[in-house]
């Protein structure tokens, strides 16, 4: 997938990406491949180079060295046709406050060569009943959904989502996940940056952890850091007491336990490391996690 002809095979292809601010590398030799149709999540503590990487992929920032191909083009040089194939939901926009939701979504629709139906998109992000409200009068979570609507109105082949559900209530998040799954089913490639690990587990086919400007690990969220095979904690009740054992092969241990207790093991549970455990361990190797813990709390 990542050979020289990879440009047509992959939606995003990055090799040896370097970006320095005042001599200090923020992104330091990063490699990345994202296949067409994937939902790909990028995780990493603040300052890890995540946002810088995504902004280079979006064409907002230039790079110091490395090759970058997004939908077969260099984002630093790509023109309007390329921009009509991507959608961006960036952080912290407060524009268009005086326009109604319908006006702003309707306007942006006309600026694309091909677009989705504005009313359907507004309904899709759950703003149907607010379509005639001014954007400036919406709540933070509703405002964010306008950003999502504008990100998908041009029917993108590739959608960048930068912390899209910040400020959403739990119900809105689940609705939003449904929308992302729908887009993914229709073939849209999605690059998701988030601090919510449950969001990664709910949506992503693959997840990458970035720390200190480099890729720490890439994989299936379910098996990241070999957590499917990592040691597990088996706990059960015996004679009214809670028993707990850490084991590298929980299946054998449980089989033995069941045999010994003649098939009756009350309170039996097997706990593998969670995605959060794996993530914290990965970034804990070289950076403080306090900032992350605060944000994800």
């Amino acid at each position: 997938m990542d050979n020289a002809g990879g440009m047509t095979e992959t939606a995003v292809h990055v090799r040896g990406l370097v970006k320095r601010y005042g001599g200090t590398p923020v992104v330091n030799g990063l490699d990345l491949d994202i296949a067409h149709g994937e939902v790909f999540a990028l995780l990493g503590p603040n300052g890890a180079g995540k946002t810088t990487t995504v902004e280079i992929l979006e064409g907002y920032r230039d790079r110091d060295s490395g090759t970058v191909s997004v939908l077969g083009e260099d984002p630093g040089k790509a023109g309007r046709s390329w921009r009509s194939r991507i959608g961006i939901v960036a952080q912290t926009a407060s524009d268009a406050a005086e326009l109604t939701v319908r006006e702003v979504v309707g306007h942006f629709a006309t600026t694309y060569p091909r677009h989705r139906d504005p009313d359907a998109v507004i309904d899709g992000v759950g703003l149907g009943e607010h379509a005639r409200k001014r954007v400036g009068r919406l709540s933070g979570g509703q405002r964010r959904r306008v950003d999502v609507a504008l990100g998908i109105i041009g029917d993108p082949d590739l959608l960048f989502l930068d912390e899209p559900t910040t400020g959403f209530d739990p119900e809105a998040r689940v609705q939003f996940w449904q929308l992302i799954r729908q887009l993914s089913m229709e073939g849209t490639t999605i690059v998701l940056t988030t601090h919510y690990l449950d969001e990664v587990e709910a949506l992503a086919n693959r997840v990458a952890v970035i720390a200190r400007g480099q890729m720490k690990v890439v994989g299936d969220p379910a098996t990241l850091g070999d957590r499917a095979n990592a040691g597990a904690v088996v706990s059960w009740r015996e004679n009214g007491r809670l028993m707990e054992t850490e084991t590298a092969s929980p299946d054998q241990f449980v089989a033995e336990l069941v045999r010994r207790n003649a098939g009756n093991v009350p309170g039996l549970s097997v706990q593998r490391p969670s995605l959060e455990d794996v993530y914290l361990q990965l970034i804990g190797e070289d950076t403080s996690t306090s900032a992350y813990r605060r944000e994800s709390a």
């Binding site: 296949a35 994937e38 009509s84 194939r85 694309y112 086919n205 693959r206």
Partner: peptide, 26 residues
């Protein structure tokens, strides 16, 4: 790690005329 087959996308028409977009922006 492979997902649903990407939608076969028709080629897109050229982006709309900048003057038309400018009038819409006005």
């Amino acid at each position: 790690m492979t997902t649903q087959a990407p939608r076969v996308r028709q080629t897109r028409p050229a982006p709309p005329n900048p003057i038309k977009v400018g009038v819409a922006r006005a």
